[in-house]
Write a protein that binds this DNA or RNA. Structure first.
Lengths: 101, 101
DNA sequence: CGTGTAAGGAATTCTGACACG
DNA sequence: CGTGTAAGGAATTCTGACACG
């Protein structure tokens, strides 16, 4: 499940280059709980490629005029839907299993 | 063909943590032409996950008592063999194609 | 609200060299 | 040959604040 894409190894300067966002913007989006980089012992932020992808997505939504809290809500909504989908799948599996026995 | 694995985005400190090698060792292996990190404008080295994998492989070979130039030769040999394999494959494809027409 | 910027400091990295073996 | 280390400097990153809108 977790591969290189999720390894938090990229510094903010590189992330800035990869996304086109300023370091200021990236730090701000972290402050607004849109991304969650790791920290080195010294305190420098470490991002994953997944974070980079998320930042590009965030940048697009910001361009669409969305506010950070709206983007955060969208993300939470997506997570809730995934949970729901999982629970329904689980329920169907259980039903099928109960029918068998 | 090129994915996140080949993106040169990781600084030497992180590479050191990921591989268990000292920064000194990593810089030395670069000096011996075993790895080829990119550089930022400022001059800091940037490695890829592929580089990290290669370094782990190098570390194993060093433990086996190999010298850096031997490891370099092995790498070159591998490349030559891949070229050869490719050329043979190409030849077979051409032969098959010529038979058809 | 989102972002730029100057400020001062701390963490990170760089190179060239000396040392050991 | 391969690696550790101290040295000095440069590049990178960090935080908190002021500014604008």
């Amino acid at each position: 499940m977790s591969s290189y894409k999720d390894k938090k190894v990229i510094t903010i300067g590189v992330v800035s280059e990869l996304t086109g966002l300023s370091e200021r913007q990236i730090r701000y989006y972290e402050e607004r709980k849109l991304i969650f980089p790791d920290r080195s012992k010294g305190g420098t932020r470490k991002f994953s490629f997944t974070d980079v992808e998320r930042l590009v997505d965030i940048a697009n939504k910001m361009e669409d005029g969305l506010q950070t809290f709206e983007i955060r809500k969208m993300e939470q909504k997506k997570l809730r839907q995934e949970e729901l989908r999982e629970r329904m799948l689980r329920g169907q599996l259980n039903a099928a299993f109960n029918l068998r026995k």
